[in-house]
Design a protein around this nucleic acid. Structure first.
Length: 137
DNA sequence: GCCAACGTTGGC
DNA sequence: GCCAACGTTGGC
């Protein structure tokens, strides 16, 4: 079981829209970056991820679960691009802002802080528990 | 709205 | 295979 982080601009695809998709979940499509794609290819059913709002909010707002393995991205004919499906699990009682993550020494090595432009990132078990703690879980 | 960081493209 | 040009992301 691995942990991940998914970034989205809420103007394009928000946590509320993700929640509205319910247990069926939704394709995490539109990724056109090899590193992000490779991370999705490595995902297993049941892996958990944080849902992060970039630009607007700049905070981790909820937890999602991978509910379909990597498959061709339906938004392109280009065979290079795959994506997984994810579904909302639960919101964080207290969203964890980028500012808070930067201020937390235990998250100094987190990709969210060190590799801001990567839209699908791995999260270590230690980072996962720290963010959950900051988020009030 | 600006700009830094970074990834991709394409000419050579 | 290198590297300059260009485009995109995302924080500020």
């Amino acid at each position: 079981m691995a942990f991940w982080l998914f970034k989205s601009e809420p103007d394009a695809w928000s946590w509320d829209q993700q929640v509205a998709k319910g247990a069926a979940g939704e394709e995490w499509n539109g990724v056109r970056n090899y590193q992000a794609r490779n991370n999705m290819r490595a995902m297993q059913i049941g892996d958990l991820g944080f849902f992060y709002h970039s630009n607007v909010g700049k905070e981790v707002v909820g937890i999602v679960e991978v509910c379909a393995l990597s498959h061709p991205d339906s938004t392109t004919d280009d065979p290079r691009w795959d994506c997984v499906d994810i579904r909302a699990v639960r919101p964080l009682p207290r969203p964890v802002t980028l500012e808070a993550a930067k201020a937390e020494p235990r998250l100094a090595g987190m990709a969210l802080v060190t590799n801001t432009r990567l839209s699908v990132q791995p999260v270590s078990p230690e980072e996962w528990s720290v963010v959950c703690e900051l988020g009030g879980l």
